[in-house]
């Protein structure tokens, strides 16, 4: 399964926005993601891609743009 497409789909679902046009925008600064959204993202990644990321592995600065999230997820699958 294509990681990029899945991540973008999850993000679109979570934020209510299509983020594919702003792959390097900071999702936390723009208010699209928050702690709650981060946890939902982790759970979605777990159920859809089978990767498990413990909460303490979630370093915000490494997960704050769509591109960074995709890179991170690709390194984990």
């Amino acid at each position: 399964m294509d990681v990029q497409a899945t991540v973008l789909e999850i993000l679109a679902d979570l934020t209510g926005n299509d983020v594919s046009g702003a792959m390097d925008d900071n999702l936390f600064d723009s208010g699209l993601l928050d702690s709650m959204g981060s946890v939902q993202l982790l759970l979605q990644l777990q159920s859809e891609l089978g990767i498990s990321v413990p909460v303490s592995e979630f370093e915000r600065s490494e997960w704050d743009t769509p591109n960074k999230i995709i890179t991170k997820v690709e390194s984990l699958v």
Binding site: S35, M36, L42, L43, S56, F58
Partner: peptide, 26 residues
């Protein structure tokens, strides 16, 4: 508090589906 209480509790609540609505969880 965010990382070790809030996020962990949210994670736990959502994983065990304690509340139907994510907003209620939050």
């Amino acid at each position: 508090f965010r990382d070790f209480i809030y996020m962990r509790l949210v994670f736990w609540f959502m994983k065990h589906r304690v509340f139907k609505n994510p907003r209620t969880t939050a």
